[in-house]
Computed example of a mutant assay.
Amino acid sequence: MHEFVVAADNPLLELRGVHTHIGEYHILQGVDMCVPRSGLTVLLGRNGAGKSTTLRTIMNLWAASAGTIHFDGENIEAVQTPDIARRGIAFVPEDMGIFSDLSVQDNLRLASISGRLNHARLDWIFQLFPALKRFWLRPGGTLSGGQKQMVAIARAIIEPRKLLLIDEPTKGLAPSIVDNLAEALIELKTHDTTILLVEQNFNFVRSIGDHVAVMDDGRIIHSGSMATLSTDETLQETLLSLQA
């Protein structure tokens, strides 16, 4: 397939020639990707294409075996995960990663660098996810999937972040929760937060994404504006058929 690559001027995040091996498996096979500053970039692709591995490689949860990763002008592929987080990147994994035995309040307090909750920021998060206020003292393990996703994202944004990595947030969620999540992501974009979102639900991301990259077999095979992909049915048929 012809490879489409669109470079961004002064991107916030840039991957060049990134390879990742997990045991004997060669998952990422030369990923070239730019995430422009501000807005929401969507990483699309079928199961097993390497999307989650890309996010985990950015966070150095799985080490890149070759290539470079630059964040805000700094090379980070050899930086330890906690230090990457301190540079302003937050990661919401597919399994959400919340503490089941702790209350919503304690989950957010643990995610705060200072260990204290900023009440102004907390009020803003309650505006994004009003349900959290109702479940504030409830253990995370008793929440529904959609409520856990709210907690996971709230944990990631309890401190101001430059970049938010979110892996498959709509998986298994009811349509009403998906709509609420879309509204929250749109609001986040207005607060100087760049988002890289891994997703398979094209109908969900086509209305909220600004930029898109499509991955297959460990490589980026297309990158460009979401508006272009949303209006080009031939391109959609070519690229999105890979997700089947």
Rank of each mutant, 00 (worst) to 15 (best):
residue 5 V to L: 10
residue 6 V to D: 02
residue 10 N to E: 15
residue 23 G to M: 08
residue 31 V to N: 12
residue 35 V to D: 10
residue 36 P to L: 05
residue 36 P to G: 07
residue 37 R to N: 00
residue 39 G to N: 06
residue 41 T to D: 03
residue 41 T to A: 06
residue 46 R to F: 01
residue 49 A to E: 04
residue 50 G to S: 03
residue 55 L to H: 02
residue 56 R to N: 06
residue 57 T to A: 12
residue 61 L to K: 15
residue 66 A to I: 12
residue 69 I to V: 13
residue 73 G to M: 04
residue 73 G to Y: 08
residue 86 R to E: 15
residue 92 V to G: 00
residue 95 D to K: 01
residue 96 M to H: 02
residue 106 D to H: 00
residue 106 D to Y: 01
residue 109 R to N: 05
residue 109 R to G: 02
residue 118 N to W: 05
residue 121 R to D: 01
residue 122 L to R: 01
residue 124 W to S: 14
residue 136 W to P: 03
residue 139 P to D: 04
residue 144 S to T: 08
residue 150 M to Y: 09
residue 151 V to A: 06
residue 157 I to W: 02
residue 164 L to V: 05
residue 166 I to M: 00
residue 178 V to A: 09
residue 178 V to W: 12
residue 179 D to F: 03
residue 180 N to P: 12
residue 184 A to E: 06
residue 184 A to H: 03
residue 190 T to Q: 13
residue 193 T to F: 13
residue 193 T to Q: 11
residue 195 I to L: 02
residue 202 F to A: 04
residue 205 V to K: 06
residue 212 V to H: 02
residue 213 A to P: 01
residue 213 A to V: 05
residue 218 G to R: 12
residue 237 E to F: 07
residue 237 E to G: 05
residue 238 T to F: 15
residue 238 T to P: 13
residue 243 Q to W: 03
